[in-house]
Design a protein around this nucleic acid. Structure first.
Length: 276
DNA sequence: CGTACGACCTGCCCGC
DNA sequence: TGCGGGCAGGTCGTAC
């Protein structure tokens, strides 16, 4: 599921139900997701109050009253699900926070590419997970100047560069494909060869698409739902993603959307509209 | 240094 | 109906 918009919305829903609540109990039903789970440390968060919930890149950060922070990454197939008692453990439920003895906040992740970790507040931005994350694309710091700087001298294609979390954090395969289409830039284009107009357009379109996706409650593909069960809507607004062979959405273009592979990942684009 | 590729997992969909 | 192959929203380590 989860790129920046989906993680952002999940975080917002978590805020509504979890912020300023005491966590009665933490259930751990797994030995390992992408990294081993620190059972002892995580168990020490029981009976503490959640005082802050935020997002950094694709990580959800839950701060407890002892200043320890729970980090959650949803990987490829992870979801947060809210449930009420009686709670039945489903397949791939790895982890749950229990509040008011009857509400369960569950991490379900079939492919186990996600992770749960814990970190002391003071060490947070030096911790292994967050230390190398690049800029947040929805902040003012992500500007024409910044994008120009990180593109200069890069021989990588623009698509792989945008997926690099050390440069920009939060973009994933869907939103990179969509942003490049919206900016009329070929995913194969070498990063350092983008001209000023393209850099400017790309910067604006990344922000625009992420904002629309957040407003649309994210993309619900392969059954992704918000914790509350709500479906996202941005998948209906895809212009290239999952649209192989379909008509390009540009009225002036008679071409069809092409599917190819870049860096081992499916890549959708219009070879008429998106320029090398 | 940058890039390319396989590995990590499971479920689902398609074709035979 | 059942099986096998290919595919999937992410990230990391290794090899060149």
């Amino acid at each position: 599921m989860p790129e920046l918009p989906e993680v952002e919305i999940t975080k917002n829903e978590l805020k509504k139900i979890l912020l300023n609540k005491h966590v009665d109990e933490i259930l751990i039903n797994t030995n390992s997701l992408r990294i081993p789970i620190k059972k002892r440390e995580i168990k020490q968060l029981e009976r503490l109050k959640v005082i802050h919930i935020s997002r950094r890149g694709k990580y959800i950060l839950i701060t407890f009253s002892n200043n320890y922070i729970l980090l959650i990454h949803l990987g490829m197939s992870g979801r947060i699900v809210f449930k009420k008692k009686p709670f039945i453990i489903n397949k791939h439920d790895h982890f749950a926070l229990v509040i008011n003895k009857k509400f369960f906040i569950i991490l379900n992740d079939p492919r186990k590419f996600g992770l749960v970790d814990v970190c002391y507040k003071e060490d947070l931005f030096n911790c292994y997970h967050l230390k190398y994350l690049g800029i947040e694309p929805l902040t003012n710091g992500f500007s024409f100047q910044y994008l120009k700087k990180i593109l200069s001298n890069r021989k990588s294609n623009i698509k792989n560069l945008l997926l690099n979390q050390r440069l920009i954090s939060g973009l994933g395969n869907i939103y990179v494909c969509e942003s490049l289409y919206e900016s009329n830039i070929s995913p194969f284009k070498i990063a350092k060869n983008l001209n000023k107009k393209q850099i400017s357009s790309l910067c604006l379109n990344i922000k625009k698409i992420l904002k629309i996706a957040i407003k649309s409650n994210g993309s619900s593909i392969s059954d992704f739902k918000l914790p509350s069960g709500l479906l996202g809507n941005f998948q209906n607004k895809f212009k290239v993603y999952n649209r192989e062979g379909k008509k390009c959405k540009n009225i002036k273009c008679k071409g069809k959307i092409t599917k190819t592979t870049i860096g081992g990942r499916p890549t959708y684009y219009c070879c008429n509209c998106q320029k090398m």
